[in-house]
Design a protein around this nucleic acid. Structure first.
Lengths: 210, 210
DNA sequence: CTCCAGAGACGTACACCGTACGTATCCATC
DNA sequence: GATGGATACGTACGGTGTACGTCTCTGGAG
Protein backbone atom coordinates (compact mmCIF):
# COMPACT_ATOMS: atom_id res chain seq x y z
CA UNK A 1 0.00 0.00 0.00
CA UNK A 2 2.07 2.91 -1.22
CA UNK A 3 1.34 6.22 0.40
CA UNK A 4 0.29 7.51 -3.00
CA UNK A 5 -1.95 5.15 -4.88
CA UNK A 6 -0.49 3.61 -7.98
CA UNK A 7 -1.66 5.36 -11.11
CA UNK A 8 -0.92 5.50 -14.78
CA UNK A 9 0.76 8.91 -14.66
CA UNK A 10 3.00 7.79 -11.82
CA UNK A 11 4.02 4.72 -13.78
CA UNK A 12 4.76 6.73 -16.89
CA UNK A 13 6.75 9.28 -14.91
CA UNK A 14 8.79 6.52 -13.36
CA UNK A 15 9.44 5.03 -16.79
CA UNK A 16 10.62 8.35 -18.17
CA UNK A 17 12.91 8.91 -15.22
CA UNK A 18 14.28 5.42 -15.56
CA UNK A 19 14.95 5.85 -19.27
CA UNK A 20 16.76 9.13 -18.70
CA UNK A 21 18.73 7.65 -15.84
CA UNK A 22 19.79 4.31 -17.29
CA UNK A 23 18.78 4.27 -20.93
CA UNK A 24 15.92 2.75 -22.86
CA UNK A 25 17.35 -0.76 -22.66
CA UNK A 26 17.11 -0.68 -18.89
CA UNK A 27 13.35 -0.33 -18.97
CA UNK A 28 11.65 -3.40 -17.61
CA UNK A 29 8.39 -3.84 -15.83
CA UNK A 30 10.30 -5.20 -12.87
CA UNK A 31 12.60 -2.20 -12.71
CA UNK A 32 9.68 0.22 -12.83
CA UNK A 33 7.80 -1.73 -10.19
CA UNK A 34 10.86 -1.74 -7.94
CA UNK A 35 11.28 1.97 -8.51
CA UNK A 36 7.73 2.54 -7.32
CA UNK A 37 8.01 0.06 -4.47
CA UNK A 38 5.26 -2.05 -5.90
CA UNK A 39 4.65 -5.55 -7.19
CA UNK A 40 5.34 -6.14 -10.86
CA UNK A 41 1.87 -7.25 -11.76
CA UNK A 42 0.25 -4.28 -10.12
CA UNK A 43 1.42 -2.21 -13.05
CA UNK A 44 -0.90 -4.17 -15.30
CA UNK A 45 -3.89 -2.76 -13.49
CA UNK A 46 -3.10 0.60 -15.08
CA UNK A 47 -1.25 -0.26 -18.29
CA UNK A 48 -2.23 -3.04 -20.67
CA UNK A 49 1.33 -3.99 -21.62
CA UNK A 50 4.83 -2.68 -22.06
CA UNK A 51 4.29 -1.47 -25.60
CA UNK A 52 1.40 0.68 -24.45
CA UNK A 53 3.52 2.00 -21.62
CA UNK A 54 6.20 3.11 -24.05
CA UNK A 55 3.53 4.68 -26.21
CA UNK A 56 2.40 6.61 -23.17
CA UNK A 57 5.98 7.69 -22.53
CA UNK A 58 6.26 9.01 -26.07
CA UNK A 59 2.94 10.77 -25.82
CA UNK A 60 3.79 12.37 -22.52
CA UNK A 61 7.10 13.68 -23.78
CA UNK A 62 5.52 14.99 -26.96
CA UNK A 63 2.78 16.74 -25.07
CA UNK A 64 5.32 18.77 -23.17
CA UNK A 65 6.42 20.61 -26.28
CA UNK A 66 5.81 24.27 -25.71
CA UNK A 67 4.60 25.99 -28.81
CA UNK A 68 4.69 29.73 -28.40
CA UNK A 69 3.12 30.37 -31.73
CA UNK A 70 2.53 33.94 -32.81
CA UNK A 71 -0.04 33.91 -35.62
CA UNK A 72 1.03 37.38 -36.73
CA UNK A 73 4.68 36.54 -37.17
CA UNK A 74 6.37 35.82 -40.45
CA UNK A 75 5.74 32.20 -41.48
CA UNK A 76 9.47 31.57 -41.68
CA UNK A 77 9.82 32.56 -38.04
CA UNK A 78 6.88 30.39 -37.11
CA UNK A 79 8.17 27.19 -38.67
CA UNK A 80 11.59 27.92 -37.20
CA UNK A 81 10.03 28.22 -33.77
CA UNK A 82 8.11 25.00 -34.16
CA UNK A 83 11.17 23.09 -35.28
CA UNK A 84 13.22 24.45 -32.43
CA UNK A 85 10.50 23.53 -29.96
CA UNK A 86 10.88 19.95 -31.10
CA UNK A 87 14.59 20.03 -30.68
CA UNK A 88 14.33 21.60 -27.28
CA UNK A 89 12.09 18.92 -25.86
CA UNK A 90 14.34 16.28 -27.33
CA UNK A 91 17.42 17.69 -25.67
CA UNK A 92 15.46 17.85 -22.44
CA UNK A 93 14.68 14.13 -22.68
CA UNK A 94 17.62 12.92 -24.75
CA UNK A 95 17.30 9.23 -24.06
CA UNK A 96 13.54 9.24 -24.50
CA UNK A 97 13.94 10.72 -27.94
CA UNK A 98 14.65 7.38 -29.51
CA UNK A 99 11.49 6.02 -27.93
CA UNK A 100 9.42 8.94 -29.17
CA UNK A 101 10.79 8.84 -32.67
CA UNK A 102 10.56 5.13 -33.20
CA UNK A 103 6.85 4.67 -32.73
CA UNK A 104 4.07 6.28 -34.63
CA UNK A 105 1.44 7.98 -32.57
CA UNK A 106 -2.03 8.74 -33.62
CA UNK A 107 -3.02 10.55 -30.49
CA UNK A 108 -3.76 14.17 -29.83
CA UNK A 109 -0.21 14.77 -28.67
CA UNK A 110 1.13 13.40 -31.91
CA UNK A 111 -1.30 15.20 -34.17
CA UNK A 112 -1.18 18.63 -32.59
CA UNK A 113 2.25 19.57 -33.96
CA UNK A 114 1.12 18.40 -37.37
CA UNK A 115 -1.96 20.56 -37.21
CA UNK A 116 0.03 23.61 -36.18
CA UNK A 117 2.61 23.14 -38.88
CA UNK A 118 0.04 22.64 -41.61
CA UNK A 119 -1.86 25.66 -40.44
CA UNK A 120 1.27 27.80 -40.55
CA UNK A 121 2.24 26.64 -44.00
CA UNK A 122 -1.18 27.15 -45.47
CA UNK A 123 -1.46 30.62 -43.99
CA UNK A 124 1.88 31.32 -45.62
CA UNK A 125 0.24 30.65 -48.95
CA UNK A 126 1.21 27.09 -49.71
CA UNK A 127 -1.30 24.82 -51.28
CA UNK A 128 -2.46 21.76 -49.37
CA UNK A 129 -0.31 19.46 -51.44
CA UNK A 130 2.83 21.48 -50.99
CA UNK A 131 2.18 22.05 -47.32
CA UNK A 132 2.06 18.32 -46.72
CA UNK A 133 5.17 17.69 -48.75
CA UNK A 134 7.05 20.42 -46.96
CA UNK A 135 5.92 19.14 -43.59
CA UNK A 136 7.18 15.69 -44.39
CA UNK A 137 10.54 17.08 -45.42
CA UNK A 138 10.83 19.06 -42.22
CA UNK A 139 9.84 16.10 -40.09
CA UNK A 140 12.36 13.88 -41.82
CA UNK A 141 15.10 16.40 -41.24
CA UNK A 142 14.15 16.96 -37.61
CA UNK A 143 13.92 13.27 -36.83
CA UNK A 144 17.23 12.55 -38.48
CA UNK A 145 18.91 15.42 -36.69
CA UNK A 146 17.57 14.40 -33.31
CA UNK A 147 18.77 10.87 -33.82
CA UNK A 148 22.27 12.07 -34.58
CA UNK A 149 22.18 14.40 -31.62
CA UNK A 150 21.05 11.66 -29.30
CA UNK A 151 23.97 9.53 -30.31
CA UNK A 152 22.24 6.95 -32.35
CA UNK A 153 22.54 7.06 -36.13
CA UNK A 154 25.62 6.80 -38.27
CA UNK A 155 27.12 10.04 -37.09
CA UNK A 156 30.48 8.67 -38.19
CA UNK A 157 31.67 11.58 -36.16
CA UNK A 158 32.54 11.76 -32.48
CA UNK A 159 32.50 8.29 -31.11
CA UNK A 160 30.40 7.29 -28.18
CA UNK A 161 33.20 7.51 -25.68
CA UNK A 162 35.70 9.92 -27.10
CA UNK A 163 38.62 7.52 -26.87
CA UNK A 164 38.47 6.41 -30.46
CA UNK A 165 38.53 9.23 -32.91
CA UNK A 166 38.01 9.70 -36.59
CA UNK A 167 41.62 10.63 -37.16
CA UNK A 168 42.59 7.03 -36.64
CA UNK A 169 41.24 6.02 -40.02
CA UNK A 170 43.51 5.07 -42.83
CA UNK A 171 44.29 8.36 -44.62
CA UNK A 172 45.01 6.54 -47.84
CA UNK A 173 41.62 4.89 -48.08
CA UNK A 174 39.84 7.93 -46.70
CA UNK A 175 41.78 11.06 -47.56
CA UNK A 176 38.85 13.42 -47.10
CA UNK A 177 37.80 11.90 -43.81
CA UNK A 178 41.38 12.05 -42.66
CA UNK A 179 41.87 15.65 -43.63
CA UNK A 180 38.56 16.82 -42.21
CA UNK A 181 38.89 14.79 -39.04
CA UNK A 182 39.12 17.83 -36.76
CA UNK A 183 35.87 19.16 -38.16
CA UNK A 184 34.17 15.78 -38.17
CA UNK A 185 35.13 15.13 -34.58
CA UNK A 186 33.37 18.13 -33.19
CA UNK A 187 29.72 18.90 -33.65
CA UNK A 188 27.78 21.83 -32.28
CA UNK A 189 24.40 20.19 -32.50
CA UNK A 190 22.44 23.37 -32.07
CA UNK A 191 24.31 25.26 -34.78
CA UNK A 192 24.25 22.22 -37.01
CA UNK A 193 20.51 21.88 -36.63
CA UNK A 194 19.96 25.57 -37.32
CA UNK A 195 22.13 25.38 -40.41
CA UNK A 196 20.02 22.74 -42.11
CA UNK A 197 16.82 24.31 -40.88
CA UNK A 198 17.70 27.60 -42.53
CA UNK A 199 18.50 25.78 -45.74
CA UNK A 200 15.09 24.17 -45.77
CA UNK A 201 13.24 27.34 -44.88
CA UNK A 202 15.06 29.26 -47.53
CA UNK A 203 14.32 26.60 -50.12
CA UNK A 204 10.65 26.69 -49.20
CA UNK A 205 10.64 30.46 -49.47
CA UNK A 206 12.02 30.17 -52.98
CA UNK A 207 9.23 27.78 -53.89
CA UNK A 208 6.65 30.16 -52.49
CA UNK A 209 7.73 33.00 -54.76
CA UNK A 210 6.71 31.48 -58.05
CA UNK B 1 27.53 -31.23 -38.85
CA UNK B 2 25.85 -29.08 -41.45
CA UNK B 3 26.75 -29.82 -45.02
CA UNK B 4 28.19 -26.35 -45.23
CA UNK B 5 30.32 -25.40 -42.29
CA UNK B 6 29.01 -22.68 -40.08
CA UNK B 7 30.56 -19.32 -40.83
CA UNK B 8 30.12 -15.71 -39.97
CA UNK B 9 28.73 -14.73 -43.37
CA UNK B 10 26.19 -17.53 -43.23
CA UNK B 11 25.08 -16.39 -39.80
CA UNK B 12 24.76 -12.78 -40.91
CA UNK B 13 22.84 -13.80 -44.01
CA UNK B 14 20.45 -15.83 -41.91
CA UNK B 15 19.95 -12.90 -39.57
CA UNK B 16 19.19 -10.54 -42.44
CA UNK B 17 16.74 -12.99 -43.95
CA UNK B 18 15.08 -13.48 -40.58
CA UNK B 19 14.74 -9.74 -40.03
CA UNK B 20 13.21 -9.22 -43.44
CA UNK B 21 10.89 -12.16 -42.94
CA UNK B 22 9.65 -11.58 -39.40
CA UNK B 23 10.95 -8.21 -38.27
CA UNK B 24 13.79 -7.07 -36.09
CA UNK B 25 12.02 -8.07 -32.88
CA UNK B 26 11.99 -11.68 -34.00
CA UNK B 27 15.76 -11.88 -34.09
CA UNK B 28 17.08 -14.20 -31.43
CA UNK B 29 20.14 -16.33 -31.30
CA UNK B 30 17.91 -19.34 -30.93
CA UNK B 31 15.87 -18.46 -34.01
CA UNK B 32 18.98 -17.98 -36.10
CA UNK B 33 20.47 -21.22 -34.88
CA UNK B 34 17.28 -23.08 -35.66
CA UNK B 35 17.23 -21.47 -39.08
CA UNK B 36 20.70 -22.80 -39.74
CA UNK B 37 19.98 -26.17 -38.18
CA UNK B 38 22.64 -25.64 -35.59
CA UNK B 39 23.04 -25.42 -31.84
CA UNK B 40 22.60 -22.02 -30.31
CA UNK B 41 26.01 -21.77 -28.77
CA UNK B 42 27.77 -22.71 -31.98
CA UNK B 43 27.01 -19.21 -33.20
CA UNK B 44 29.31 -17.82 -30.56
CA UNK B 45 32.28 -19.42 -32.25
CA UNK B 46 31.88 -16.91 -35.05
CA UNK B 47 30.21 -13.93 -33.43
CA UNK B 48 31.12 -12.54 -30.02
CA UNK B 49 27.58 -11.56 -29.08
CA UNK B 50 24.25 -10.41 -30.42
CA UNK B 51 25.20 -6.75 -30.57
CA UNK B 52 28.16 -7.57 -32.76
CA UNK B 53 25.94 -9.70 -34.96
CA UNK B 54 23.57 -6.80 -35.51
CA UNK B 55 26.55 -4.56 -36.23
CA UNK B 56 27.59 -7.07 -38.86
CA UNK B 57 24.09 -7.02 -40.29
CA UNK B 58 24.22 -3.25 -40.59
CA UNK B 59 27.65 -3.33 -42.12
CA UNK B 60 26.68 -5.98 -44.65
CA UNK B 61 23.61 -4.08 -45.75
CA UNK B 62 25.56 -0.84 -46.02
CA UNK B 63 28.32 -2.45 -48.04
CA UNK B 64 25.81 -3.45 -50.68
CA UNK B 65 25.16 0.12 -51.65
CA UNK B 66 26.09 0.52 -55.27
CA UNK B 67 27.69 3.83 -55.95
CA UNK B 68 27.95 4.45 -59.65
CA UNK B 69 29.83 7.67 -59.21
CA UNK B 70 30.85 9.61 -62.29
CA UNK B 71 33.61 12.04 -61.27
CA UNK B 72 32.97 14.14 -64.35
CA UNK B 73 29.31 14.70 -63.69
CA UNK B 74 27.80 17.80 -62.21
CA UNK B 75 28.15 17.75 -58.40
CA UNK B 76 24.40 18.14 -58.03
CA UNK B 77 23.88 14.97 -60.01
CA UNK B 78 26.51 13.18 -57.98
CA UNK B 79 25.02 13.94 -54.57
CA UNK B 80 21.60 13.08 -55.92
CA UNK B 81 22.92 9.72 -57.07
CA UNK B 82 24.53 9.03 -53.75
CA UNK B 83 21.41 9.89 -51.81
CA UNK B 84 19.29 7.73 -54.08
CA UNK B 85 21.70 4.83 -53.67
CA UNK B 86 21.06 4.99 -49.96
CA UNK B 87 17.36 5.00 -50.41
CA UNK B 88 17.50 2.15 -52.85
CA UNK B 89 19.34 -0.19 -50.53
CA UNK B 90 16.98 0.74 -47.73
CA UNK B 91 13.94 -0.14 -49.77
CA UNK B 92 15.62 -3.39 -50.69
CA UNK B 93 16.05 -4.26 -46.99
CA UNK B 94 13.19 -2.32 -45.44
CA UNK B 95 13.11 -4.01 -42.09
CA UNK B 96 16.87 -3.96 -41.73
CA UNK B 97 16.91 -0.23 -42.20
CA UNK B 98 16.00 0.44 -38.60
CA UNK B 99 18.88 -1.75 -37.54
CA UNK B 100 21.31 0.01 -39.84
CA UNK B 101 20.21 3.47 -38.87
CA UNK B 102 20.13 2.93 -35.16
CA UNK B 103 23.75 2.00 -34.62
CA UNK B 104 26.79 4.00 -35.43
CA UNK B 105 29.38 2.23 -37.48
CA UNK B 106 33.02 3.08 -37.68
CA UNK B 107 33.92 0.46 -40.19
CA UNK B 108 34.96 0.73 -43.80
CA UNK B 109 31.41 0.14 -44.93
CA UNK B 110 30.21 3.01 -42.80
CA UNK B 111 32.95 5.42 -43.72
CA UNK B 112 33.01 4.87 -47.45
CA UNK B 113 29.81 6.78 -48.20
CA UNK B 114 31.09 9.60 -46.02
CA UNK B 115 34.35 9.74 -47.92
CA UNK B 116 32.57 9.78 -51.26
CA UNK B 117 30.19 12.50 -50.24
CA UNK B 118 32.88 14.73 -48.79
CA UNK B 119 34.97 14.25 -51.89
CA UNK B 120 32.10 15.23 -54.12
CA UNK B 121 31.27 18.31 -52.11
CA UNK B 122 34.83 19.54 -51.94
CA UNK B 123 35.32 19.04 -55.66
CA UNK B 124 32.21 21.11 -56.12
CA UNK B 125 34.01 23.93 -54.40
CA UNK B 126 32.74 23.79 -50.87
CA UNK B 127 35.17 24.41 -48.07
CA UNK B 128 35.85 21.65 -45.59
CA UNK B 129 33.66 23.21 -42.98
CA UNK B 130 30.70 23.65 -45.25
CA UNK B 131 31.11 20.23 -46.77
CA UNK B 132 30.84 18.62 -43.36
CA UNK B 133 27.84 20.70 -42.42
CA UNK B 134 26.12 19.91 -45.68
CA UNK B 135 26.85 16.23 -45.31
CA UNK B 136 25.33 16.19 -41.87
CA UNK B 137 22.21 17.88 -43.16
CA UNK B 138 21.87 15.38 -45.97
CA UNK B 139 22.40 12.44 -43.67
CA UNK B 140 19.82 13.74 -41.24
CA UNK B 141 17.30 14.15 -44.02
CA UNK B 142 18.03 10.74 -45.51
CA UNK B 143 17.84 8.95 -42.17
CA UNK B 144 14.61 10.66 -41.25
CA UNK B 145 13.09 9.90 -44.64
CA UNK B 146 14.06 6.26 -44.52
CA UNK B 147 12.56 5.88 -41.09
CA UNK B 148 9.27 7.29 -42.28
CA UNK B 149 9.37 5.09 -45.33
CA UNK B 150 10.07 2.01 -43.29
CA UNK B 151 7.04 2.65 -41.17
CA UNK B 152 8.66 3.75 -37.98
CA UNK B 153 8.63 7.41 -37.07
CA UNK B 154 5.67 9.67 -36.43
CA UNK B 155 4.43 9.59 -39.98
CA UNK B 156 1.06 10.62 -38.62
CA UNK B 157 0.04 9.60 -42.06
CA UNK B 158 -1.07 6.22 -43.38
CA UNK B 159 -1.43 3.90 -40.47
CA UNK B 160 0.39 0.62 -40.20
CA UNK B 161 -2.53 -1.45 -41.38
CA UNK B 162 -4.65 0.80 -43.47
CA UNK B 163 -7.82 0.21 -41.50
CA UNK B 164 -7.55 3.30 -39.36
CA UNK B 165 -7.17 6.48 -41.32
CA UNK B 166 -6.37 10.08 -40.67
CA UNK B 167 -9.81 11.23 -41.62
CA UNK B 168 -11.17 9.77 -38.43
CA UNK B 169 -9.71 12.59 -36.40
CA UNK B 170 -11.88 15.25 -34.90
CA UNK B 171 -12.19 17.92 -37.61
CA UNK B 172 -12.86 20.59 -35.00
CA UNK B 173 -9.65 20.05 -33.09
CA UNK B 174 -7.67 19.41 -36.26
CA UNK B 175 -9.23 21.29 -39.15
CA UNK B 176 -6.12 21.22 -41.31
CA UNK B 177 -5.46 17.56 -40.69
CA UNK B 178 -9.09 16.85 -41.43
CA UNK B 179 -9.15 18.81 -44.64
CA UNK B 180 -5.87 17.46 -45.91
CA UNK B 181 -6.61 13.90 -44.87
CA UNK B 182 -6.70 12.57 -48.43
CA UNK B 183 -3.24 13.96 -49.08
CA UNK B 184 -1.90 12.86 -45.72
CA UNK B 185 -3.18 9.36 -46.19
CA UNK B 186 -1.23 8.67 -49.31
CA UNK B 187 2.50 8.99 -49.63
CA UNK B 188 4.60 8.28 -52.69
CA UNK B 189 7.81 7.71 -50.80
CA UNK B 190 10.04 7.99 -53.82
CA UNK B 191 8.56 11.27 -55.01
CA UNK B 192 8.48 12.59 -51.47
CA UNK B 193 12.12 11.76 -50.97
CA UNK B 194 13.10 13.37 -54.24
CA UNK B 195 11.15 16.50 -53.36
CA UNK B 196 13.11 17.20 -50.21
CA UNK B 197 16.34 16.13 -51.82
CA UNK B 198 15.92 18.70 -54.57
CA UNK B 199 15.18 21.35 -51.99
CA UNK B 200 18.40 20.62 -50.18
CA UNK B 201 20.49 20.43 -53.32
CA UNK B 202 19.07 23.68 -54.56
CA UNK B 203 19.74 25.36 -51.23
CA UNK B 204 23.30 24.13 -51.30
CA UNK B 205 23.72 25.42 -54.84
CA UNK B 206 22.60 28.82 -53.68
CA UNK B 207 25.19 28.79 -50.93
CA UNK B 208 27.88 27.84 -53.42
CA UNK B 209 27.23 30.90 -55.58
CA UNK B 210 28.39 33.51 -53.14
C1' DC C 1 -25.47 -4.08 10.83
C1' DT C 2 -24.41 -7.84 7.28
C1' DC C 3 -23.27 -9.14 2.76
C1' DC C 4 -21.35 -9.03 -1.46
C1' DA C 5 -19.27 -7.29 -5.66
C1' DG C 6 -15.67 -4.95 -7.70
C1' DA C 7 -11.10 -3.06 -7.81
C1' DG C 8 -6.51 -3.13 -6.94
C1' DA C 9 -2.08 -5.23 -5.11
C1' DC C 10 0.45 -9.21 -5.18
C1' DG C 11 2.91 -14.00 -5.93
C1' DT C 12 3.53 -17.81 -8.73
C1' DA C 13 4.47 -19.82 -13.03
C1' DC C 14 5.65 -20.20 -17.86
C1' DA C 15 7.97 -19.48 -22.04
C1' DC C 16 11.52 -17.12 -23.95
C1' DC C 17 15.78 -14.51 -24.00
C1' DG C 18 21.34 -13.86 -24.07
C1' DT C 19 25.22 -16.13 -22.81
C1' DA C 20 28.94 -18.28 -19.33
C1' DC C 21 30.80 -22.61 -18.90
C1' DG C 22 32.10 -27.41 -19.51
C1' DT C 23 32.46 -31.05 -22.85
C1' DA C 24 32.84 -33.89 -27.07
C1' DT C 25 34.59 -34.25 -31.60
C1' DC C 26 37.51 -33.43 -35.40
C1' DC C 27 42.03 -32.39 -37.66
C1' DA C 28 46.84 -30.64 -38.26
C1' DT C 29 51.06 -30.78 -36.17
C1' DC C 30 54.84 -32.52 -33.45
C1' DG D 1 50.52 -41.91 -31.00
C1' DA D 2 50.21 -37.64 -28.43
C1' DT D 3 48.80 -33.00 -28.31
C1' DG D 4 46.60 -28.75 -28.92
C1' DG D 5 43.45 -25.79 -31.18
C1' DA D 6 38.98 -25.03 -33.64
C1' DT D 7 34.49 -25.94 -33.67
C1' DA D 8 29.79 -27.90 -32.38
C1' DC D 9 26.97 -28.75 -28.70
C1' DG D 10 24.17 -29.17 -24.03
C1' DT D 11 23.29 -27.47 -19.67
C1' DA D 12 22.39 -23.88 -16.60
C1' DC D 13 21.71 -19.16 -14.75
C1' DG D 14 19.68 -14.89 -14.37
C1' DG D 15 16.93 -11.94 -16.83
C1' DT D 16 12.49 -10.70 -19.53
C1' DG D 17 6.99 -9.96 -20.43
C1' DT D 18 2.78 -11.43 -18.85
C1' DA D 19 -1.38 -15.02 -17.98
C1' DC D 20 -3.63 -16.45 -14.07
C1' DG D 21 -5.25 -17.11 -9.37
C1' DT D 22 -5.48 -15.15 -4.84
C1' DC D 23 -5.72 -11.89 -1.18
C1' DT D 24 -7.33 -7.53 0.89
C1' DC D 25 -9.81 -3.44 0.97
C1' DT D 26 -13.77 -0.52 0.09
C1' DG D 27 -18.32 1.04 -0.84
C1' DG D 28 -22.90 0.56 -1.55
C1' DA D 29 -27.52 -2.71 -1.16
C1' DG D 30 -30.50 -5.08 1.67
Amino acid sequence: MPVQPLSRPRIVASAIALIEREGADAVSMRAIAADLGVGVMSLYNHVPNKEALLDAVAETVLSQIEFTDDPDAEWTDRVRMQALAFRQIASHYPRCTMVVVSRQLRSTAGLLPVERALDTLRQAGFGGDEAVRALRVFIAYIVGSLLREVGVTPTFAPVHRSDVRVDEVDPVLFPQVGELAPILDECDHEAEFAFGLEMLIQAMAVRLNR
